[in-house]
C-alpha cells in the first residue's frame, strides 16, 4: 500500500530526514513515534506530497509521489496538527468543500457528507459555524475533511493533541473505526496513544528510522524499569549482590526518608522481579511497593532513542 524507500530531506544544509524506509500494508493502523523535532511531520508531508524529498521515493497504492503528485494526493487524506478549517463555514459546508476540492464528484457529495458526519460523530453540529466549536469537535471535523473524499490512506498528525480524557477515548474509537475502510498512519509523541491505537509502530529519531514492528516485537529484549520502596537502611542494601542477580540490568538505590529506601532496577522478566523482591525480603527489608516506572513502550522508546544517540 505505502512504500517509502531511502527518503531524505534537507532544509538548506540541515538534514531533517536521513534515508528513511518503511512499508505499510493496506488496512493497517500504524503509529509514527518520535520526540518533538524527530522528523515525523516532515515524513508525513513527504508522504502526502506536500514536500518533495531531496532523495528517495514514495509510492502510495502504486502511485509515485514524484511522477504523479496529484494522483498521489487524491489517494491521501491529511489532518495536520492544526486542523485546516475556515471558521466562517458551517461543519457541513466545510466537509463538502473539502470533498469537492479533493475530487469527489458533485453528485456524490451530499450523500458522502452525511456518511462522514455520522462516522465522525458530528452530525449534531453539522449546521454550526466552525468558530463556535470546541477543540475536540474541531479535531473531529478535521478527520471528517481528511476522509471525505474516500482516500485509501488517512494520515493524522498528532490527532489527540490538546484533547481532554473523554475526548481522547472518543477519538481512539473514531480512529479504530477508520480502519474498516482506510489504511491509517498516525504520528504522535504520546506513547500511550500509539500503544492503544496502532497495530504497528515506526520509531523515528533525529530524522532516522531507528525501529519498526509491533509493540510486542519492539519490547522483546527491553527490560522495563521497576521501582521498589522498602523499609530498611540504605547502608544495608547489598547493592553488589542485588545487581548480580539474574535478569537485573541496572540498579540504583536512594534514601527515601522515614527509614525507607527507593530502589530502581531494570528487570528482564517476571521471574527476575520475583527473585529480586524475594532477595530483599530475605535480607530483612519490608517491601512496601513494587511498580513500573516506565510502561513497556516507554522503555522501548527510551532505549531506542538513547541507542541511536550513542
Amino acid at each position: 500500500m505505502i512504500e517509502a524507500t531511502g527518503v531524505s530531506k534537507f532544509y538548506g544544509a540541515r538534514r531533517a530526514l536521513s534515508d528513511v524506509s518503511f512499508s505499510i500494508a493496506a488496512g493497517e493502523v500504524v503509529g509514527f513515534l518520535g520526540l518533538n523535532g524527530a522528523g515525523k511531520t516532515t515524513v508525513l508531508k513527504v508522504l502526502c506530497g506536500l514536500l518533495v524529498p531531496s532523495s528517495g521515493k514514495v509510492t502510495v497504492d502504486g502511485v509515485d509521489g514524484i511522477e504523479a503528485p496529484r494522483e498521489l494526493r487524491k489517494r491521501i487524506g491529511f489532518l495536520p496538527d492544526r486542523p485546516p478549517l475556515f471558521p466562517e463555514m458551517t461543519v457541513r459546508q466545510m466537509v463538502a468543500y473539502a470533498a469537492r476540492l479533493c475530487g469527489l464528484p458533485a453528485e456524490r457529495v451530499d450523500r458522502r457528507v452525511a456518511e462522514v458526519l455520522e462516522l465522525c460523530g458530528i452530525a449534531e453540529v453539522a449546521d454550526d459555524l466552525i468558530e463556535w466549536l470546541s477543540h475536540g469537535y474541531r479535531q473531529r471535523v478535521g478527520i471528517a475533511i481528511a476522509v471525505a473524499h474516500e482516500p485509501k490512506l488517512v494520515v493524522l498528525d498528532e490527532p489527540i493533541s490538546g484533547l481532554d480524557p473523554a475526548q481522547i477515548v472518543a477519538m481512539r474509537g473514531l480512529i479504530r473505526g477508520l480502519k474498516e475502510k482506510h489504511t491509517v498512519l498516525i504520528s504522535s509523541h504520546i506513547l500511550s496513544e500509539i500503544s492503544h491505537t496502532c497495530d504497528r509502530i515506526l520509531v523515528l529519531h533525529q530524522g532516522r528510522m531507528v525501529a519498526q514492528g509491533t509493540e510486542a516485537t519492539l519490547a522483546s529484549g527491553v527490560s522495563p524499569l521497576v521501582e521498589i520502596v522498602a523499609r530498611g537502611q540504605l547502608a544495608d542494601v547489598a547493592k553488589a549482590e542485588l545487581a548480580h542477580l539474574e535478569g537485573v540490568a541496572e540498579l540504583e538505590a536512594a534514601d527515601a526518608g522515614d527509614g525507607l529506601v527507593r530502589l530502581r532496577a531494570r528487570l528482564a522478566s517476571d521471574a527476575a522481579r520475583e527473585l529480586f523482591v524475594a532477595t530483599l525480603v530475605q535480607r530483612g527489608f519490608g517491601v512496601r511497593t513494587v511498580g513500573d516506572v516506565e510502561a513497556g513502550l516507554e522503555s522501548v522508546f527510551l532505549k531506542l532513542t538513547k541507542g541511536a544517540e550513542a
Binding site: G49, R70, R73, R82, P83, P84, A98, L101, G103
Partner: peptide, 14 residues
Amino acid sequence: QLGTLVLLEASPAR
C-alpha cells in the same frame, strides 16, 4: 497564519 493553506496544498488541485 490560520494554517488552512495546507488544505489546498494537500488536495489534488494544481
